[in-house]
Design a protein around this nucleic acid. Structure first.
Lengths: 332, 332
DNA sequence: GAAGCTAATCTAAACGTTTCGGGATTGTCA
DNA sequence: TGACAATCCCGAAACGTTTAGATTAGCTTC
C-alpha cells in the first residue's frame, strides 16, 4: 500500500480509501490509484488489517472426528456457508481428547478468530475456563454445555433413540443390546435416556449387561458387540449410538459367523451415504445434517453481524428414523 | 503485553523476552513478569506477532469435496500432522469449481498462510496465475500441475487402474464399462490411460460407448451407469473412477433390478471403511491415504523449516487392489 | 581510579493497515 | 472581495508485537 501510494504520488490514506471504498475520493485519483494497484499487483494484507480492525473474518471449528460421516457432513455444510459469507474456517479435530480441545481453542483465540463453532468434548469445566473472558461468540453443535452463554443447535437425542428402540420393540425384540459412547457427553447421555425410556414404556426391564460403553470408534464398537453377542442368551437386536461403532459391530457379527438381520437385527445413530446400496441396508436415525450446519452458521453469522449480544439461542432439531432392512421381526 | 510491562514495571522488550524465551533475562525479573502474566491472564496476540514476523503458523488446504471419503481421510491426516507441529489449517472446498478455487487461494494468500496444500481442480493456467509471485510453498496432492514449481505427492493412477481392469479381464470380462470423471484433471486422465492400456494389453478393443464421463458425484455416477446398462449388450463389469460415483452406479444397478455381482461386477477407485462389512463387499483400489497426507505434510513442513528452497520434489505412491466379492468370474 | 567488558534492561523503529483530525483548494453568497 | 462551507486529500497515530541498537550497572584489570 505504501508502494502504491508512492508510485501514484498520493498518501496511503487515499489508497486505503479507494481500496475500501469507504471515503470519498475524486474519480481521477481513484482511477489513477486503481491503475497503479493493477500494475503493481497490490494485494491488501489481511493480517495487518485484522490487527487494526480487531476482526479476522475467520472462524474456528472443532469437531471430535472428521472421519465420522456425521461430522464430515456438518463440517462440509458449515464450511460452505462461511465460504459464501467471505469467512475462512480453521478446522481442528479434538480426537475426543479434552487436552487437545483446550489447546486448539486457545490457539484459535490467540489467532483472534471472530467466532467459534464447537462440537465439544468432555465435561464443560475446562472448556468454560478456556473461553471465559474471551468475548468470542460461540455456537455449540451436537453437544451443549451447562452454564455457558452460547448459542447451540442440538438434536432431540432422547426422542430419536426412543423412537428407534420403540421400533425394535415393535418388531418383537425384547433383549436389545445398546452400544453407547462415554456418557459424559450430553447427546450420548440423552440417547441412553431414550433407550431406557423406550424399554420402560414397553414394560421391559433395563438390563445393564445389555449396555456396553464403546469409545466412539470402530474398535470400541467391535469390542462391545463381541461382548454382547458372546453370551448364551445374546440380544436379538443391537443399537449403536453412533456410526463408526456400528461398523465395528457389523464386523463382530460377521466374525462370529452370525447374519444380520437373521440372527441379530442392527440399527444405529447417524445415516451415511452407503446405507441405501449395500446389504443389509442399515436402519438408522438420520440427523438433519444440512440443517444443523446451516443453523449453526446462521446463528454465528447473525451474532457477528448486528445481533452481537442477543440472548443465547438454542435450536433443537428432530432426528428421523429411516427404516431399511437390517432389522427383522422377532417371532415368539 | 504493554499492560504486563506496566504492571511489572518493566519494558515491553523484557516481557517479550520472557514470553519467547529467546533473550536472556535475570531469574528474578523473569519470575516477576511471569507472575504478572498469570495474574492479568495475558495472552500473546498471534495476529500482531504474525504481522511483525511475517509468518502465521497457518497453512491453507483446499480439496474438491470433503465428503468424498478419500479427501476426508487425507484432510484428517494432514490436519493431525499440522496440529502436532503447532500449525492451524484453514480448510476450503472448491466443489470442483475453478472460480471458487481461485477465490479461496487468493483469500489464503491475503491471509499470509505459510504454505498451501492443494488438491487442484481444472487446468493449471488460472491456478498458476493466482499463485505466481506469492512465494508461498505449495504441495500439490492427488493432482499435479505442469510448469509449477511445487512439491507433489500423487498416485501412480495409470498403474492402479491397469491392475484393477486386468483383474476384471482375468475374471473373464470382455465388455467393461468405465465411469470416468472429467478428463482435465491429471489423475482421472491417467486412470483412463490405465483402462485403455489394460484392454489393449489383453488384445481387447477400446469401445468409446463403454466409457462415460460422470461429474465426480453420486448423481453423475448414477446417470453414467444407467446409460451403460440400458443397452442390449450391456457391459458385464463396471469400474468407477472414484468413490461417490460408484454409489450412484450401485443405485442404478439396484433400480434396474440387476444384482451385483451376479449380473454385473463392480469395482472402483478409493476404498472406504464400510467396504468390508456390507454386501456386496466392494473390490476397490485403495490409495495409501495416510501416507499421502503424511508425506504432503512432511514435504511442506520441511520447506517451512530448513529447506526453504530445495528443488521441487515429487513423490509417487502406489495403489493397492483390494479384492472382495463384488466381482464375479464370467464364464464363456 | 579510569578504562574496558559483560550482562541486563530499555528505547524506539518497524510490520501494513485504518482513521481521526486538520490543511488546501475551490465554490458560494452576502 | 472576504467569510464561510464543502470537498478532497494528507499526516500521523494507533493496533500489539519483535528486535536492533542504546543505555546502564556491575565487575575486572591494569
Amino acid at each position: 500500500m505504501i508502494d502504491v501510494a508512492e508510485a501514484a504520488g498520493v498518501s496511503v490514506a487515499s489508497v486505503s480509501a479507494v481500496v475500501n471504498g469507504n471515503a470519498v475520493v475524486s474519480p481521477e485519483l481513484k482511477a489513477r490509484i486503481e491503475r497503479v494497484i493493477g500494475d503493481i499487483g497490490y494485494k491488501r494484507n489481511a493480517i495487518a488489517r485484522s490487527l487494526k480492525m480487531g476482526t479476522t473474518h475467520t472462524i474456528g471449528l472443532t469437531v471430535p472426528h472428521i472421519t465420522n460421516p456425521f461430522f464430515t457432513d456438518v463440517v462440509s455444510v458449515i464450511q460452505q456457508a462461511f465460504d459464501r459469507a467471505g469467512y475462512a474456517v480453521m478446522l481442528f479435530c479434538t480426537d475426543e481428547d479434552l487436552h487437545n480441545q483446550d489447546e486448539q481453542i486457545r490457539l484459535l483465540l490467540d489467532r483472534m478468530v471472530d467466532g467459534l463453532i464447537v462440537a465439544r468434548v468432555g465435561d464443560g469445566a475446562s472448556f468454560k475456563k478456556v473461553i471465559e473472558g474471551s468475548g468470542v461468540p460461540i455456537v455449540l453443535i451436537d453437544r451443549t454445555c451447562e452454564g455457558i452463554e452460547a448459542d447451540a443447535v442440538v438434536l432431540d437425542n432422547q426422542r430419536a433413540v426412543f423412537d428407534a428402540i420403540g421400533y425394535l420393540i415393535g418388531l418383537g425384540h425384547r433383549r436389545i443390546g445398546y452400544i453407547s459412547g462415554s456418557l459424559d457427553t450430553s447427546p450420548i447421555h440423552d440417547r441412553r435416556l431414550g433407550y431406557d425410556q423406550a424399554l420402560r414404556a414397553a414394560g421391559l426391564p433395563v438390563v445393564e449387561d445389555l449396555v456396553r460403553i464403546g469409545d466412539f470408534r470402530e474398535a470400541g464398537g467391535y469390542r462391545a458387540a463381541m461382548q454382547l453377542l458372546s453370551v448364551a442368551d445374546r440380544p436379538t437386536a443391537i443399537f449403536s449410538a453412533n456410526n463408526p461403532m456400528v461398523i465395528g459391530a457389523m464386523k463382530a457379527i460377521r466374525d462370529l459367523g452370525l447374519a444380520c438381520p437373521q440372527d441379530v437385527s442392527v440399527a444405529c445413530f447417524d445415516d451415511f451415504p452407503w446405507a441405501d446400496v449395500f446389504q443389509p441396508q442399515l436402519t438408522t436415525v438420520a440427523q438433519p445434517v444440512r440443517a444443523i450446519g446451516e443453523q449453526a452458521a446462521e446463528l454465528l453469522l447473525d451474532r457477528l453481524g448486528a445481533n452481537r449480544n442477543a440472548p443465547p439461542r438454542k435450536i433443537v432439531l428432530q432426528g428421523r428414523l429411516i427404516v431399511r432392512n437390517s432389522c427383522a421381526a422377532r417371532i415368539g
